[in-house]
């Protein structure tokens, strides 16, 4: 064996052992970074539901999987448990047009476990991934937050309203355009529509968002009312 080959061979073996050493260390540290102590029976059951329905071959989780549907790593912190529950009960209710997720007819126990699992996943320390969008500068952010408008628009996006509604050309087309909704409707009408869409139009396919906290509903109403 040539001496260069010997050196290469030894270096390769050293790298393999180094990798094993780093694995031992990583697994040790990961119990803290993933909050392994919070892996309750319900969370683990949620992982089983996730795998049973092969969710990972449409969605990415921690950025891994198929790219057909949104990444779910932070879906719990972005959407909140009530939204996720409602969506999992009937995906078409939240996204009535465009690319569809099949209704798997999950039992309420399965949905609870899956939501608990997504909650646990959203708390994993992912070294800052996914990155925050850079569309809004910190200065704009602070300014808008002071006016209260940003909080409402965040809720609007987090609840997926833009799947159906459009604001300034951005969003879905199956529901009314909300660009100037503030000049057409008053605050109490908007709040009533959010709570019970079928009150005014019995045929409406819009789901009720009555489950949102009152403060969040108020911020959403303020935001929509500001769109003159």
């Amino acid at each position: 064996m040539l001496w260069t080959h010997k050196i290469l061979w030894i270096a390769t073996l050293v790298s393999a052992f180094a990798f094993l050493g780093m694995t031992v260390d990583s697994l040790h540290r990961m119990s803290a970074s993933t909050h392994a102590d919070q892996l309750s029976a319900q969370v683990i059951e949620g992982k089983r539901v996730w795998q049973h329905y092969d969710c990972n071959d449409c969605h990415t989780i921690l950025g891994i999987g198929a790219y057909y549907a949104p990444d779910v790593t932070k879906s719990y912190s972005q959407r909140g448990a009530p939204w996720l529950r409602k969506f999992l009960e009937n995906p078409a209710a939240m996204y009535p047009s465009g690319r569809q997720m099949p209704n798997f007819h999950l039992s309420s126990a399965q949905i609870d476990s899956l939501v608990a699992y997504l909650g646990w996943v959203s708390r994993i320390d992912t070294n800052g991934w996914p990155p925050s969008p850079e569309g809004v500068t910190p200065a704009e952010d602070a300014q808008r937050a002071a006016g209260g408008e940003l909080a409402g628009s965040k809720i609007y996006l987090a609840q997926g309203c833009n799947a159906c509604h459009t604001i300034q050309g951005s969003g879905g087309t199956i529901a009314p355009d909300l660009t100037h909704v503030g000049s057409r409707r008053n605050k109490s009408w908007i709040l009533a529509q959010i709570n019970d869409p079928r009150r005014i139009n019995a045929q409406s396919v819009m789901p009720s968002f009555a489950q949102l906290p009152e403060s969040a509903k108020q911020q959403l109403v303020d935001y929509l009312d500001s769109l003159k």
Binding site: M22, S26, R29, M30, L62, I124, T126, N127
Partner: peptide
């Protein structure tokens, strides 16, 4: 191992 709950040194 950058973003999956693994240590930063990766």
């Amino acid at each position: 191992y950058y973003w999956i709950g693994t240590p930063h040194y990766w």
